[in-house]
């Protein structure tokens, strides 16, 4: 169930090999760098545009993190509300699913028109993409308590509140974190997609806008540099969430795998 990069050596070696192969291939076949730049050129572009790109990275990161925190809180809170009663689940879940299955590119333009603050609009888009895994997983988790443990709580006359806080919530915690790790990646995707849609219209100039801009101007190495920062961010978010999750679940050791 847990995917951790326990031993960083093999992926690092593969990465280096691919980079060398890439550089060699680009030089050997004389691929023009507006089609495919080599890693060396990309690194150079990253260095030359460092302040610009890292500034944009910060903006994208801000949107992603705010959306992710909102997804964690909102998804979990919604799951709790729905688990209180069947009728609540039946009346709310369809809307959560509608929000999940409607392509964000299709609703992003509307949201950007409706919401005054560009930052808030982008956060809202990223949130819509990111909250569902937390919601769905937490809901599953809240229902996954061992039936015998449920009986035990009932035998000792536990109240609804006691069962929820001492049995259902701790049972749901590993599920919540599994959802959160998926949401981390989705929040980033949501932020990028929303930025693409917002384009120059917004004042926000996150990484996605830099990619568009570099594409229009045929600054392909810069485009790749921005892309590289983006994937690095994705990996970083996943890693941080994994560490957070194993810290929070240290008492579940063994129970989660």
């Amino acid at each position: 169930m847990r995917m951790r990069l326990k031993d960083p050596l093999p992926p690092t070696l593969i990465g280096i090999a691919v980079l060398i192969g890439w550089e060699v291939a680009v030089r050997l076949f004389e691929v023009p760098h507006y089609v495919l730049p080599g890693p060396f050129l990309i690194a150079q572009a990253l260095w030359q545009n460092a302040s610009l790109l890292f500034g944009s990275l910060w903006i994208t990161l801000e949107i992603t993190l705010v959306a992710l925190i909102a997804a964690a809180l909102g998804g979990a809170a919604l799951a709790f509300v729905m688990s209180r009663a069947r009728w609540l689940e039946r009346s709310l879940l369809p809307y959560a699913i509608v929000a999940q299955v409607t392509p964000i590119v299709a609703i992003a333009p509307l949201i950007i028109i409706w919401v005054d603050s560009a930052f808030a609009a982008l956060v809202l888009c990223a949130w819509i993409v990111a909250f569902f895994p937390v919601l769905a997983n937490t809901m599953t988790g809240l229902k996954s308590a061992d039936p015998n443990l449920r009986d035990l709580f009932r035998l000792y006359g536990a109240s609804r509140w006691q069962t929820q806080s001492w049995l259902e919530t701790p049972t749901a915690l590993p599920y919540f974190f599994a959802g959160l790790r998926i949401s981390g990646g989705l929040a980033l995707i949501g932020a990028v997609v929303a930025e693409f849609v917002a384009g120059t219209g917004g004042t926000a100039t996150g990484l996605a806008f830099r990619i568009l801009e570099a594409g229009y101007r045929l600054q392909i190495p810069k485009l790749f540099a921005a892309l590289f920062l983006l994937s690095l961010t994705g990996i970083l978010i996943y890693t941080i969430l994994s560490i957070l999750s194993s810290w929070a679940l240290r008492r579940w050791i063994g129970a989660a795998d």
Binding site: D151, L152, L155, Y156, R251
Partner: peptide
């Protein structure tokens, strides 16, 4: 009434003491 199931049916996140404390905690 004490009930013992086929599986130990313990809270995996709680230590031995806390598991035995559960009926008292509920009361």
């Amino acid at each position: 009434i004490g009930f013992v199931f086929q599986d130990a049916t313990l809270l995996p996140w709680a230590n031995v003491w806390d598991n035995i404390y559960l009926p008292f905690r509920i009361q």
